[in-house]
Design a protein around this nucleic acid. Structure first.
Length: 363
DNA sequence: AAGACGGGGCA
DNA sequence: TGCCCAGTCTT
């Protein structure tokens, strides 16, 4: 009797009962009691949180979500915002194409859809930055659609529940079909959030808490193998090392010379200090030969930063420079307002290496 | 189908 | 410190 595959009709009630007891109170959520009274979450809030949650943990997202909502209370406000202000508000959250697409999506909703998000999966998927997962999540959570929501957490839960041996990403269609079969007509949004919560808190990548799992009597992986070894996945390749140099110029007014990166590509649309290209070549130009303007550059050592597909070792140089002696299309930013700039983490590391107090709180 | 694209959490 | 995590868009 134990560890039988779960009848599809039993899964949702079992999981929702667990969800109602362990529900997490998050800024973009409507509580289960409210949901049962027919209150649905604001599609703008659901969309904003789901885009932020792509590849990003709940903990990291909370503060950004509150900041965005306070700066731009409606999707029309966001559509009217300056691109640069959106990039500044997004700085530090990573995957900056998300911020560029967020702005484009807000404009599309405001200008082409009368300020209302489409209420179907297909309609949502046609918008910038909304793919399979996010379209299904918004449709289920904000519009009560019975869509199959499959993110990394759900993939883990499903792969263990059915002990799926096919490695990812080939197993995705099978997993999606499994989720679709389990998703109920009633409360599909809560079901989706419950599956994701289960993956985030109980069915974790390492050391899952199987004894607390509402599916423990039905989990194939728990019965026949080690749940931690699921989902199976193709092995990843190792990251190359790239090198470069970064130049932190400081003028007499204690301002740092910044410039804007290209709109697309790595860290697209974000700000940076001047520097070399980042290259994997052994003869990479990491020296003073590539200084952006002549000055008495002082060697500040190196910093390291790991990106998704390469590791970067950056030589950092600092110099005091007269503002009149520089050329180019950058600008001078006072050290005390650096924190509010659209600076990605690697640039904050480089600046902090040259100016240790740069991002310390004001006394 | 594979690669580009950040940053944070955990042991 | 090193390893793991994981949606969307582009090629």
């Amino acid at each position: 009797m134990m560890h039988d595959t779960i009848p599809a009709a039993d899964a949702a009630p079992l999981l929702l009962e667990w969800y109602d007891r362990h529900h997490r109170d998050l800024p973009w959520r409507v509580s289960p009691p409210m949901a049962r009274r027919g209150i649905v979450a604001d599609p703008y809030h659901v969309w904003l949180s789901e885009v932020m949650l792509q590849q990003t943990t709940v903990q990291a997202v909370k503060a950004y979500f509150e900041k965005f909502l306070s700066l731009w209370p409606t999707v029309e406000d966001l559509a009217r915002a300056e691109n640069e202000d959106v990039m500044k508000a997004w700085a530090g959250l990573g995957y900056y194409a998300r911020a560029r697409n967020l702005k484009k999506c807000a404009e599309a909703v405001a200008n082409d859809h009368g300020g209302r998000f489409p209420d179907t999966e297909d309609g949502l998927k046609s918008l910038p930055g909304i793919g399979d997962y996010t379209a299904a999540a918004i449709a289920a959570i904000a519009f009560n659609r019975r869509s199959a929501v499959l993110d990394g957490n759900v993939e883990r839960v499903i792969s263990r529940l059915y002990a799926i041996e096919t490695p990812l990403p080939a197993a995705k269609p099978e997993m999606r079909a499994r989720v679709a079969a389990l998703t109920p007509e009633s409360r599909p949004g809560d079901f989706a959030q419950a599956m994701m919560d289960l993956g985030a808190t109980i069915c974790t990548p390492k050391r899952p808490a199987c004894s607390l799992c509402p599916f423990r009597a039905h989990c194939r992986a728990l019965a026949v193998a080690d749940p931690e070894t699921f989902p199976r996945k193709a092995q990843k390749k190792d990251k190359p090392l790239r090198r470069g140099a970064a130049f932190v110029a400081i003028d007499a007014d204690n301002a740092v010379y910044l410039r804007k990166r290209a709109e697309t590509g790595l860290l697209g649309g974000m700000s940076e200090v001047p520097g070399t290209d980042w290259t994997s070549r052994q003869d990479g130009d990491t020296s003073l030969a590539s200084q952006p303007f002549a000055a008495a550059w002082e060697d500040c050592g190196t910093i390291s930063h790991v990106f998704t597909h390469f590791e970067l070792r950056l030589s950092v140089y600092r110099a005091n420079v007269a503002r009149a002696g520089t050329q180019g299309n950058g600008w001078w930013e006072p050290v005390h307002s650096l924190s509010a700039q659209a600076l990605p983490t690697v640039m904050k590391k480089a600046i902090a290496q040259a100016i240790p107090h740069a991002f310390k709180a004001e006394r």
